[in-house]
């Protein structure tokens, strides 16, 4: 594979989706995220890389307030989504999560039929007026998840019966079904084999047309393959953030260079 070689990328400046400043996250006494400033663009794939425990997943989970479900977690700083503070009291985290969808490390389809898995979000948010519209949403989402052809004949089969790669694409389709503006992916390929991984990566690239995608990954090749922007986290700090090509060919910080050449991490 020659994927480490950065590809020429057509980078046009998109509008800023997330504008985060002075972000701090504490788990009890532990200071997990320290002074992170990052701007995530629309219609762009942004990759978070870094060694285990560096805080990249924690930061990702701040973006849709999933950390609210953890009792000991405390978040400070500015998180603007389209210019609005998401940690403002007036913002309903439930509404926010409909706008900022999430795909998890391990595929987690609900123990329901494939159809119901996709229809779950639209039903909760009342996106479909009737059955026909719901059917349409389900089909559209499954097509976007690049899994329609594989499951169109067995929409009533349980989602848990699919293979790992299919399950993960089902979960992506499920996240897409609620029409989010941002899609967060927490190591979406770590439980998948190479073939399923490449399918999911292709999918991520397609999703870029409509969404802002933020992906946490342990694989630097993956970051180089799918992302336009890369952020390198180390020990809770955002060490370097920039064009993916620049990060991988010409890192400014010695720590970034050490990591991508395999000396730390």
């Amino acid at each position: 594979m020659n994927d480490m070689r950065p590809v020429e990328r057509a980078v046009d400046t998109n509008e800023i989706k997330f504008d985060c400043k002075d972000c701090q996250v504490y788990y009890g006494e532990k200071h997990a995220i320290i002074d992170v400033d990052v701007k995530i663009e629309d219609k762009t794939v942004t990759a978070f890389i870094g060694p285990s425990g560096c805080g990249k997943s924690t930061f990702l989970r701040c973006l849709n307030r999933m950390n609210d479900t953890i009792d000991i977690c405390r978040v400070e700083g500015q998180f603007l989504l389209d210019g609005e503070e998401i940690y403002d009291k007036r913002v309903d985290p439930v509404q926010l999560r409909a706008k900022v969808g999430m795909v998890f490390q391990r595929p987690n389809p609900f123990p329901k039929s494939i159809y119901d898995n996709i229809a779950y979000g639209p039903r909760i948010h009342g996106l479909a007026k009737n059955k026909a519209e719901l059917d349409e949403i389900v089909e559209k989402s499954l097509r976007r998840g690049a899994i329609w052809d594989e499951v169109k004949d067995r929409l009533d089969a349980p989602g848990t019966g699919l293979s790992g790669g299919q399950q993960q694409r089902l979960c992506i389709a499920r996240a897409v079904a609620t029409e989010p503006e941002v899609l967060l992916m927490d190591e979406p390929c770590s439980a998948l084999d190479p073939i399923a991984t490449s399918q999911v990566e292709e999918l991520i690239d397609e999703l870029r047309e409509n969404y802002s995608v933020v992906i946490v990954t342990h694989s630097m090749q993956q970051a180089a393959r799918v992302s336009q922007k890369t952020a390198f986290f180390h020990l809770g700090n955002l060490v370097e953030f920039g064009e993916t090509g620049q990060i991988f060919t010409n890192p400014k910080d010695p720590r970034t260079e050490s990591y991508i050449t395999g000396r730390i991490g």
């Binding site: 998890f104 996240a175 609620t178």
Partner: peptide, 25 residues
């Protein structure tokens, strides 16, 4: 917990999650 996270991640409230994901499971 992954079931609950999946549901919360789609913007479901706690009681919706319990009623539609946790209890059926």
């Amino acid at each position: 917990q992954a079931m609950r996270d999946g549901s919360y991640g789609l913007g479901a409230t706690q009681s919706e999650t319990i009623k539609q994901v946790v209890l059926p499971a």
